[in-house]
Write a protein that binds this DNA or RNA. Structure first.
Lengths: 318, 318
DNA sequence: CTGTTAGCGCTTTCAG
DNA sequence: CTGAAAGCGCTAACAG
């Protein structure tokens, strides 16, 4: 009964006789013995840990993604460290550095980090991106541009002629996607689009934006995400502006379901799907070591609820 | 320039001459050398990893707690694994077992696990509980009972005579706390309390409960948490029952701010504070190895917004 | 202040 | 199918 035998009983039982395995296991249980994972990791160079870094765990967009990553990681026998960068590129950099020594790879969701830093980190460890488009790095992209286009078309069909885009974080790839799609589609359709940055991509940011939205004289707004849209909704209500009768609003991500009043029309976002795929991609990269370039685009759509309608007849154009 | 010197240059630079440290570091940088954390962990027996297990990361109660744990862990030089048990005791057990080999300790938030299993795990690793009261294990308890009492008093003062308690997960310590406080206070004040379990502690569960709440003939309800309360709110609105004019509702946890319509009166919950303290407790336990029994109680209060009012004059008692 | 020497607990050839 | 022995890369006495 050498240590090698014990080791094999746990890692390659097929190499041993049934009987031996049984015996080792039973004695181990009796003694409360469990293999030391650290030692095993040192010996094999593998420990099955990965890290997931998100900009803000409190943003409802991320929890479903986080869950998906965890579930999937679990299936692949991986454990996941979670890091929250607080929307801060530098903190993100530090976090990644801190994890680097103890993980086999990373999933970076909506990273705010500069491209060259991402590239640098990817030299050291396999790394897959969600909602960030860096050539040479495997990535899964939720293409909210398609949804944004649909949103503008929807608004145009209803008769809106001038609409606002309430922007999100400037370093957010998703925001750039949405912004461009809105601008471009508005242009194509002959709508006038006014860009209004939200102070922060939050409920409060949305509320705060109401004043300038109203001043802008638009009849509808599409917001960077549902949180901002919700802020818009209650800000509007506070001012006695009825949605959708007097004003239409469209959100993005579909994290609120029909909870708002009125239920929010929004652009769907398969975030769990993104997390799942990203994790699979990473798991593959870990075993094949061949990090071929993969980019996976996920589509979005418009979920029509009750926050959009035709503009009032007396349409004001400033 | 022995390996020991290199080691010391990274872990105890004060033992070396300035010059040597500088040289080692510079060479290391040039070569891209970084100490291998696994090997270090094997040698020292310490690696600074902890695990945080929550029942449902998508429940807005947890993200602030998770963040707090991470931030605090970071300050203490710890990295955190996150596990989501999906409200499932068995999965929780498995998760803990999986992590046990690679963490120095645990923070279990609102664990659904049976007491003896918790005790068993605590034998192997230091472990601190949030919102779970198991004698012998360090724990931080958000005492929502005080808030629940205030809620019932508030309702009684407004003139309500019969109110419903919409329950949450039965294995939840918090739910038991709230339920008992509501029942007891109602009793003291001579109110009639009717208990209604939510099918699930979610928005949908709240909506689904509306039918039986209405049938019960109560004039107010306090819900297990804000999610359920929100479901109640929109379910009530759907039936044309005006809140708070015709019905009052109180939530718990204060995770929605003033987002609901009407803004929800609720019981505050210092979840971030709880996470912070729990992490500090664990960090202490890790260094002192003296796991003295600590229990920290955090108080809650009633945040009065606009979802409660006097009952209608024609009060119906079935 | 710096070098030498044992391990930490496991996996893994290589022999039997 | 099982045992012996050589590390994985680092830290920690113990000497100098």
């Amino acid at each position: 009964m050498s240590r090698a035998t014990v080791s094999r009983a746990f890692t390659r039982p097929e190499m041993l006789s049934h009987e031996t395995v049984r015996r080792v296991r039973s004695v181990a249980k009796r003694l409360g013995y469990v293999p030391n994972q650290i030692a095993r990791a040192l010996s094999t160079g593998r420990h099955g840990n990965i890290a997931l870094v998100v900009p803000d765990i409190a943003n409802p967009f991320f929890p479903p993604l986080i869950r998906a990553v965890q579930t999937r990681a679990d299936d692949a026998g991986l454990s996941v460290f979670l890091g929250d960068s607080d929307e801060n590129a530098e903190r993100e950099d530090v976090l990644i550095g801190k994890f680097a020594g103890q993980v086999e790879g990373f999933v970076l969701a909506s990273p705010r980090l500069a491209k060259d830093r991402i590239l640098a980190h990817s030299k050291r460890r396999p790394l897959v991106l969600v909602n960030r488009d860096v050539a040479g790095i495997p990535r899964v992209l939720i293409d909210s541009a398609t949804g944004a286009r649909l949103a503008i078309h929807h608004l145009a069909e209803l008769g809106h002629r001038s609409v606002a885009y309430i922007g999100g974080p400037v370093s957010s790839w998703s925001n750039q996607q949405r912004r461009e799609a809105v601008l471009r589609t508005g242009d194509t359709l002959g709508l006038s689009i006014v860009e209004i940055p939200a102070k922060s991509a939050t409920f409060e940011g949305g509320m705060a934006a109401v004043a300038v939205v109203v001043a802008a004289g638009v009849t509808a707004a599409v917001a960077f995400d549902d949180l901002v849209a919700e802020g818009l909704l209650v800000g509007l209500a506070t001012r006695g502006i009825e949605v959708p009768r007097a004003f239409s609003v469209i959100g993005c991500d579909d994290v609120l379901g029909a909870r708002t009043n009125p239920p929010l029309t929004t652009i769907s976002s398969p975030s769990a799907e993104a997390g799942r795929i990203a994790t699979d991609l990473l798991a593959d990269a870990l075993k094949s070591a061949t990090s071929r370039e993969v980019v996976c685009r996920l589509h979005t759509g418009l979920i029509s609820r009750a926050s959009t309608a035709e503009p009032q007849s007396s349409q004001q154009i400033r």
